[in-house]
Write a protein that binds this DNA or RNA. Sequence first.
DNA 1: CTGTATCCGTGTTGATACTG
DNA 2: CAGTATCAACACGGATACAG
Lengths: 231, 231
Amino acid sequence: MNRPNRKRAYQDGCAVAHALDLIGDRWAMPIMRELMLGPKRFTDLRASLPGISANVLTQRLEELEAASVLVRRRLPPPAASQIYELTDWGRESEILFQVLGRWACRSPTMEPGKPMSQVSVVLSMRTMINRAAIGDMDATIGLRFGEEEFRAVLRDGDFTIDRGDATGDVIVTGDQNAFVAMLYGGQRLEDMAGALSVEGDRALLDRFLTLFPLPPKAPSTVSPGSTASSG
Amino acid sequence: MNRPNRKRAYQDGCAVAHALDLIGDRWAMPIMRELMLGPKRFTDLRASLPGISANVLTQRLEELEAASVLVRRRLPPPAASQIYELTDWGRESEILFQVLGRWACRSPTMEPGKPMSQVSVVLSMRTMINRAAIGDMDATIGLRFGEEEFRAVLRDGDFTIDRGDATGDVIVTGDQNAFVAMLYGGQRLEDMAGALSVEGDRALLDRFLTLFPLPPKAPSTVSPGSTASSG
DNA sequence: CTGTATCCGTGTTGATACTG
DNA sequence: CAGTATCAACACGGATACAG
């Protein structure tokens, strides 16, 4: 229990430096990301953050709780387990993830194809949606990624997607990475080798997939032969 | 020279995780912040980032260069020194700093009064300006913090501030931390004990200072007696 | 089953000293 | 001025053992 308790902190009045003191440690933002669509248990977090170790997760959760970014709640019996949930202010950090995501997807070194968590995929849709292209579309799209279900709604020129029953005009079931390959990789359902199945209005799905354009890449300013850290 | 060259990277397709791979290392964002208003030399960076050590600065600059966030340029003689300059894409990251700053200044654990760099103060004004309150103000404000000079312009309901000659309708000279105490701490010029001097239209300065309101704090969700890391 | 604590090998960070 | 070299302290990740 008696940890030394003194973190390395920027001694800087800049609010950005304070933000980095709070959420700049390794794994802090990915943890927040995984909680953005609702609370999760320790084990769920661990499962959706491949590479994190139990002790690091414990420590980050403590620090984020101390920062009032999240709270831990004990569920009533028979669940008898704890859940971690963003505070209101923690949830307001979603804009950080959107802006960071929009900037980073233009990175010259961003390479697609690496696996994403279910939550990442849903948040990326909130980030990349081109609202100007929605027009008068009025539709509900259900997504079922493993055990998790989400529902997207297009209405009145707006787009929302949240946890919820995967019902609607079209329902996609399967692996979220296969869905991402369609969404951002330009792949077609036929290329998915059965990793995805679709029920309902396939034409709607095709149109839906066009609503998430990727912005142009920024040019690389590194000469190809230099000693850049290649991953 | 032959560093192992393999960083700890999130193996995650999420664009946010990629962003963190690029600029999530300690000191990376403060370095970018210091370059946001124009290029700087190694020694200037070191001076404006108290606490960073030379080897870490070297390494971060290399990594940020490899990420195409900044470039290093050799100045023509007689300067004969290098400068570090953000790329276009690197400069577009300013929105990250604004969003991060707006979110973090609501932190329950944010405590004012810690020193800020000159660049931080200027960027914070870009972040916190309340454009709706500008009205028909038409004025130029000069700021002189140490060796650095900045010029703020209010015109057509817009606000800009950049490096530039500290001339205008009112000119403030002195320590940027004293200026911040007026800007965000509600202090008055008389309380500054001579750390600031003002030439020109003092009424304009008073009105100018009202254009940068702080948003309300988020509530703390930590019980005061708990073992929070009070770092 | 759901976390938490401890040990250990390794890599990163940071302070000091030093070189071109 | 612009970095390198060295070294100690710490953080991370993996494994494992422990507690409710």
